[in-house]
């Protein structure tokens, strides 16, 4: 893995999200708690809703377009809906958010 510093935890609102543009598309950084972040694809598999604009609750996010709910641990859609979003390795170090550069690069995928 190659960790890339993408910003400070306080740049992401608590129970909110911010976007990161990457080679594999837009990745959403979700802040579910004071010191808890997740990274996943920004795009809902249903109608491509921007998940970073959804309501963040527990360790889940609700798509703003049609209320699909995804578990940020697994990326799996919850309830009756079927689908999955890609999740990416992310971690916190002294308040900095580190995203795995290899996972979001097209070169490593090749």
């Amino acid at each position: 893995m190659s960790w890339i510093d993408i910003g400070h935890i306080d740049d992401v609102p608590l129970r909110g999200a911010r976007l990161v543009k990457t080679e594999v598309g837009c990745v959403a950084i979700f802040r579910t708690d004071e010191a808890e972040v997740f990274a996943a694809s920004n795009t809902c598999p249903h109608r491509q809703g921007p998940l970073s604009e959804g309501i963040v609750h527990g360790q889940k996010v609700t798509c703003p377009l049609h209320n699909w709910v995804f578990d940020l641990n697994t990326g799996e859609a919850q309830g009756a809906d079927e689908g999955r979003i890609t999740t990416y390795p992310v971690r916190l170090e002294d308040g900095r958010i580190l995203l795995d550069g290899e996972a979001v690069s097209t070169r490593s995928a090749a």
Partner: peptide, 13 residues
């Protein structure tokens, strides 16, 4: 600023 992406990794690449 909050309406912009947090980071743009496509530029680095």
């Amino acid at each position: 600023r909050r309406f912009q992406p947090l980071a743009d990794l496509t530029l680095k690449a």
